[in-house]
């Protein structure tokens, strides 16, 4: 038997819940067929989440899922150029025509889909952004040099959450694109996803009793993101997310973290998302999205 899970046509942070719903109970009792044939676009968040799903299934030693790749040539080509298929082949049995990865990532890609397993990977990702992305961030997003450094710091801290807390590897991708409908401006987006234990399990030993009956994925996210709680006793811990929040406050950015069945966001004025969404369909690991808008007036 095989369980078919269709990927939304437009696969991003807003449609991940819909995709998670189609997966059914976790862990899946049957082999999965991830059907992306009708998918025409996926954000870095969507692609990183998809790899996380494959990784989580592999770590559970369940049968390798099949992934039916998009029918659209453009979409397939784009996924190849972001590096997605390069990693996906390890976790999925790919069904469909797979383009060879050309040398050039799309122009909007600041960091292609990249595995993060150790501190050295974080060095490489941050170095690559500092080296290659500064021009794009300053010219296209009108970020000041200081904001570009802050962007790299946010990226570094977000990636470190994988190394420090997840207990397994994860994925990062960074891209700029035009948010015409949502914002009317260009944005830079950092997407980080890991297949680890999630915030609730990471903080359970130290926080569950304190929080009491409300303890769950949502409360764990609040502890980490709003109160700077870390599973380590060292008071210097938990500063990474606090630093990201400070940076985002200054540059009107947004951070959203999904873990297990909850998603918590720190919202700028321009976003109409709910701060806390609970009782969502389960998705393995944790997914972080950081969005920095171009520093200019909205298009009229």
């Amino acid at each position: 038997m095989i369980h078919v899970a269709p990927v939304p046509a437009h696969f991003d942070d807003r449609t991940l819940d819909q995709f998670a719903q189609t997966l059914g109970p976790w862990p899946p009792a049957e082999r999965l067929l991830i059907d992306a044939r009708g998918t025409t676009w996926a954000s870095p968040y969507g692609l990183a989440a998809m790899l996380t799903l494959g990784q989580a299934i592999a770590e559970l030693k369940l049968p390798k899922p099949r992934l039916a790749v998009p029918e659209s040539d453009d979409t397939r080509s784009y996924w190849a150029r972001t590096g997605f298929f390069h990693h996906a082949v390890e976790y999925f049995e790919l069904a469909g025509k797979i383009p060879k990865r050309s040398g050039d990532a799309p122009g909007s890609t600041l960091v292609p889909v990249t595995a993060v397993r150790a501190a050295e990977d974080v060095h490489e990702v941050v170095g690559r952004v500092q080296e290659g992305a500064t021009r794009i961030l300053t010219s296209e997003l009108k970020l000041e040099a200081k904001a570009v450094m802050g962007f790299a710091m946010a990226l570094s801290e977000a990636c470190q959450n994988i190394v420090e807390h997840a207990g397994t590897g994860g994925w990062v991708a960074v891209q700029t694109y035009m948010w015409q409908r949502r914002l009317g401006r260009k944005v830079a987006v950092i997407a980080v996803s890991d297949a680890g234990v999630g915030f609730r399990r990471s903080l359970e030993a130290s926080e569950a009793k304190k929080v009491g009956e409300r303890w769950g994925d949502g409360a764990a996210l609040e502890s980490a993101l709003l109160h700077g709680v870390s599973r380590f006793r060292d008071p210097g811990r938990g500063q990474g997310l606090a630093g990201i929040k400070r940076y985002l406050l200054r540059w009107q950015g947004k951070i959203s973290i999904r873990s297990g069945t909850a998603r918590l966001s720190v919202l700028p004025e321009w976003d109409d998302d709910v701060p806390l969404a609970e009782h969502l369909p389960f998705f393995p690991g944790s997914q972080v999205q950081i969005t920095i808008p171009a520093q200019e007036a909205p298009a009229r």
Partner: peptide
Amino acid sequence: TVTSAYNHLVTRPTG
């Protein structure tokens, strides 16, 4: 400390 060619002080283990 690290093999990276970059001059950035990032990550707790590096610190």
